[in-house]
């Protein structure tokens, strides 16, 4: 329950910052996708089910405040959370290489899915243009920011895990 509330709080803080403060750090009007970093990090730290839920939450928030239909971004968030969660097993959580790489590739996948399903696909059909001018810079920018955000979420996760362990011990003594 505590974990659920903290994840929700992180997502809400993220969308507030993304829609206000992060507009100031646009480089050539490209803004990094920090929501995706949160989803990928959560999935890596906790596995597919929680990655799915985080993706669902992040997508729904985006849908409600900026989307034109309910569920559009939520589907993409869920799928990416699920896929990133597959890497949960067998990786050192202290290692930054995998989260950064995953953030890069999930941004590419996420934006490509938006391109394929959005009005751009019907209007332009020139994926290379969008890949070079939008998707690639965004993915690089996101991957760079992922280092800092993953570090924060890593310590948040560690903190919660410690609390949970303590609780479990408490219960076992009572038994």
């Amino acid at each position: 329950m505590r974990r659920f509330l903290i994840t929700m709080l992180i997502l809400i803080i993220n969308i507030i910052l993304q829609s206000t403060l992060f507009n100031l750090i646009r480089i050539h009007s490209i803004i990094p996708n920090t929501a995706l970093v949160v989803v990928v990090s959560m999935a890596l730290l906790r596995g597919s089910p929680e990655g799915c839920l985080t993706g669902l939450g992040a997508g729904l928030l985006h849908d409600i405040f900026f989307g034109s239909s309910l569920g559009y971004y939520a589907v993409f968030g869920m799928v990416l959370g699920y896929l990133a969660g597959k890497f949960n097993h067998g990786f050192y959580k202290e290692n930054y290489l995998l989260p950064v790489m995953l953030c890069f590739f999930s941004t590419v996948i996420y934006e490509s899915m938006i391109f394929l399903t959005g009005p751009f696909f019907y209007g332009y059909l020139n994926y290379p243009y969008f890949f070079i001018n939008l998707i690639l810079p965004e993915a690089v920018y996101t991957a760079v920011l992922a280092i800092a955000i993953y570090r924060i979420l890593f310590s948040v996760n560690e903190h919660i895990e410690k609390k949970e362990k303590y609780k479990r011990k408490l219960f076992s003594i009572k038994k």
Partner: peptide, 11 residues
């Protein structure tokens, strides 16, 4: 009070 945090649209 807020701008779309994506790169595709301007809402």
């Amino acid at each position: 009070i807020g701008k779309d945090p994506g790169n595709w649209y301007l809402t």
